[in-house]
């Protein structure tokens, strides 16, 4: 036995727990659910049949699914720019050497380490008809929806989106902060010597060097936003009138509430493909790999 094969075996042995978990809880379900998406499998049913693409065809004729797709798209497009800009703004603010910056940093990060269910319950109260937000709006004369924010068709989804921006900004702020810390101080000093304004050094030094981090932030956030579920489950269950129905909630409802596992798997695969397409587009837009070539 040579030295390298022993080393390789040791490595493999160390990796085994992770590999096994990956195969058992990730890879196998992934492949199996692809198979399920082409069957009419129902939980508790004694048999299932292969139905080919029938589930996928039915999905695109299902008004609820189309609505879920639209709502998810609105959610993604409506939250990501705000979250990213807020996160970057907060990172720039707390990156300055000001007294108490640490406190602000932890403060903005707290929502990310708080249970999402707890936050969702708190916001359910805030948004309710007798809640503080309604009272505040009444005080300054902003009209509020008659049935409370979460039970009015027009405001339910935006209300959840706003909450989500609030939760997520702190986490991505931390990532941007890490990116900011890795930019060498000398570059700013050199720029200052050359008489560059704060604005132009932000534009030419900070932003380009934050690019990999920005890509990472937007990518991860896109994937997470496409999968929005807990907020919906706790706050509205897709209502009122389907105005907050999202794709993952649809998958949950059809799969675990109505037991239509085959159909739910097909919906999950549509989402999977969508997320993949978006991720590829974003990576292309940000020119992944370009920086290494430079």
């Amino acid at each position: 036995m040579t030295h390298t094969t022993t080393a390789r075996r040791t490595t493999l042995l160390y990796l085994l727990p992770w590999l096994l978990t990956l195969a058992l809880f990730w890879l196998y379900p992934l492949l199996h659910s692809f198979y399920l998406s082409m069957t009419d499998y129902e939980l508790l049913a004694s048999e299932s049949h292969f139905v080919g693409l029938a589930n996928y065809i039915e999905l695109f004729n299902d008004q609820d699914f189309l609505k879920a797709l639209l709502n998810t798209a609105i959610f993604v497009v409506g939250t990501i720019p705000f979250t990213t800009v807020f996160a970057l703004g907060l990172a720039l603010l707390v990156n300055r050497r000001i007294p108490g910056a640490q406190i602000f940093r932890s403060g903005y990060f707290i929502p990310s380490i708080t249970s999402l269910v707890v936050i969702a319950l708190i916001f359910t109260n805030l948004y309710s008809r007798g809640g503080y937000l309604t009272m505040l709006c009444d005080l300054v004369g902003i009209p509020t929806p008659e049935r409370g924010f979460l039970f009015s068709e027009g405001t339910a989804l935006p209300a959840i989106m706003a909450m989500d921006v609030w939760i997520a900004s702190g986490y991505y702020m931390l990532l941007f902060l890490a990116g900011l810390k890795s930019i060498p101080e000398e570059q700013y000093e050199a720029a200052a010597l050359d008489g560059a304004s704060a604005w132009s050094s932000f534009w030419t030094i900070t932003l380009p060097q934050l690019r990999p981090m920005a890509l990472y932030v937007i990518l991860i956030n896109t994937i997470k936003s496409f999968q929005v579920f807990v907020e919906i489950f706790v706050m509205t269950k897709g209502g009122p009138l389907n105005s907050t129905l999202t794709v993952v909630y649809f998958v949950y409802d059809r799969g675990l509430h109505k037991f239509l596992m085959g159909y739910a798997s097909a919906a999950a695969y549509v989402l999977f493909v969508l997320i993949m397409i978006f991720a590829l587009i974003q990576m292309r837009l940000f020119g992944v790999g370009r920086s290494t070539a430079e």
Partner: peptide
């Protein structure tokens, strides 16, 4: 948002295995 172990949408099958 789902937890990392439910990174894909196939938490249903995962749950089954966990059970």
């Amino acid at each position: 948002m789902l937890t990392p172990c439910c990174f894909t949408q196939h938490f249903c099958v995962v749950k089954k295995l966990v059970m």
